[in-house]
Design a protein around this nucleic acid. Structure first.
Lengths: 336, 336
DNA sequence: TTGTACGCGTTATCAG
DNA sequence: CTGATAACGCGTACAA
């Protein structure tokens, strides 16, 4: 089963075999400079004979340029698998990185040890830059990137690291639009399950909600929680119903929160969407796993990936990189 | 936005700053050999002062060992995103690779160009070994791995490359078991939509099906197609119904095929599972995206990832690596 | 057109 | 205990 690799041939071996110097071999290898037809032929024969394949790692060291970009997925547990956005971001990033003839190397962080090792990898001279998705505020890999000064781009929630360009969405506009759409279904008493008001994303979504309601905005109908979690949806929804039994519409700050809200609504005997219209945010797996499927806001994941890649390549090219904000899209399903 | 990295400090700089030789610096860096307390202190101060961080790429070159393992995802289109198995395999592999203090670098292949670049990367001295998922028979990356003799392991359908150890499942037993379960629901005329009979996976599934039926096996009730595709399910199911209108049970060789079959059954007015019981294979996204959800066979993806990683590490440790076959599990849902 | 010498950043092997 | 010096495998001026 196992076929041990014979020790690999080097430029040195090729040169010896062809009876020329390493410099000449290097020239034909890189197609640069002049080399006689005779020498070239002998060298090419020698390459085939000794089975030479270039050691790119050594070449990179000599040229101090790796042509590789890291893609760090730093999601707790296996969110990596659950969140369809991440896969799309990955593909988008790979697309433009590959187009620039760079190699994308994906690094998944699933533990503190992983984080340490990946940080080391990023600083180890293996990549020219990096894209990091969904960094959280206490992300040590992000810290390492910033401290080392590696050209990078973050996608997702801003992580309070101003020195690194971000790719984000317009949370405010998206929240306003989906709320307006919800109102258009004829709902009269509409509340919001807000989350993470201490972060841009959370605060902006609340602001968009308020904009959509205008005069009809009632602060009593907003419940907030620090986390975008299922549990916060369960509890928040109960609180909201207690405050306003006649509630007939809800905007949850994320699909996970909406799924939690759904749970409470069902327990309280409220039908969705007949009695209460419910909308979420993210278009994550929660949206289609819930019954009914959630109407929600989809992020342009693939484009976000593309944009992040460009941000990194721009920096590698010596250009300045500026934050990018991308538009979102409303996905109307069955929950409202 | 952009913070250009100042040129990085080297061992040389540290040595100069501390007033010692590079050799001594290297010794404290690696904690090997004797070094005076005085020298160590001066060196540590120097390291902090010049902001030295080790260039692991250079170190690897000098030690000719990378402590990295490649994970190649070579799925056409974006199957990467659709197949829940791949993510689990990835996590399993990362788990044991990380445990062995190696870095897993994921390489996604989404085009011929990607394949070329990734092959080059794998041969370029960046990794000590590789895991490759779902190689197809014409997989150029797999060919490159074999030709180069890189220690590796393949997971998924065997790709006819005997020199590389595989991690597989027992397709025959799994097929037999789910067919038996289908029969237990009282079905009398059971057919099969077979696929890829030229590959082990396809042939074994048919064999398991036949075993389960025993004397009741009727070759007329087997339709086959070279591909595990939705389309083959659509066409095959029509063919099967034409041959035997009284059919009341079907085993499709994959969930995609089953989903296609579902389409035809619906078009022909057959209710599932009332009129016809249908089971698939893979437990892919098709299974839960279909209505009704498919009863199917789940592969122990995480374990497969773990096993593949061990296979690679074994080879790196100079041990022999043998093929691994893992058991499967039946997932009973609503389609039968 | 070709060979030489040096550099990329680090480690390893020696004397001393 | 420490400092030269030679690898690791390759690129690239520069001189010939």
């Amino acid at each position: 089963m196992t076929s041990p690799r014979r020790t690999r041939a080097t430029v040195h071996d090729v040169a010896a075999q062809a009876g020329v110097s390493r410099g000449t071999v290097s020239r034909v290898l890189n197609g640069a400079g002049y080399v006689s037809a005779d020498a070239r032929a002998r060298i090419e024969a020698a390459i085939a004979e000794v089975g030479y394949v270039r050691n790119t790692a050594a070449r990179n060291l000599a040229r101090s340029k790796t042509w590789a970009v890291g893609f760090v997925v730093h999601e707790p547990h296996q969110l990596f698998l659950e969140d369809p956005n991440i896969g799309s971001i990955l593909l988008g990033t790979n697309e433009v990185v590959a187009d620039a003839d760079h190699q994308l190397v994906v690094l998944v962080v699933d533990s503190d040890r992983d984080a340490k090792r990946v940080s080391g990898y990023l600083r180890g001279g293996f990549v020219d830059g990096a894209v990091l998705v969904s960094a959280r505020s206490d992300d040590t890999v992000a810290d390492a990137i910033v401290e080392f000064g590696l050209p990078a781009a973050f996608v997702g929630h801003p992580a309070g690291r101003a020195s690194v360009p971000h790719v984000r969405i317009d949370n405010r506009t998206a929240a306003r639009q989906i709320t307006e759409r919800l109102l258009a279904t004829g709902r009269r008493r509409v509340g919001m399950l807000a989350s993470a008001l201490d972060r841009d994303s959370g605060a902006d979504r609340l602001e968009g909600f308020q904009q959509a309601l205008g005069d009809r905005f009632d602060p009593r109908l907003v419940v907030d929680d620090p986390l975008y979690s299922y549990q916060s949806g369960v509890a928040g929804m109960a609180e909201l119903l207690d405050r306003e039994p006649a509630l007939d519409g809800v905007f949850a700050a994320s699909d996970a929160v909406a799924a939690g809200a759904l749970e409470t609504l069902r327990a309280r005997g409220r039908r969705v969407p007949e009695d209460v219209g419910l909308v979420g945010f993210d278009d994550s797996a929660w949206a289609t796993r819930s019954t009914p499927h959630l109407s929600t806001v989809r992020q342009p994941a693939r484009d976000m990936g593309r944009a992040a890649a460009r941000l990194v390549l721009d920096q590698l090219g010596g250009h300045e990189a500026h934050d990018v904000t991308l538009p979102t899209e409303i996905v109307w399903r069955d929950s409202a």
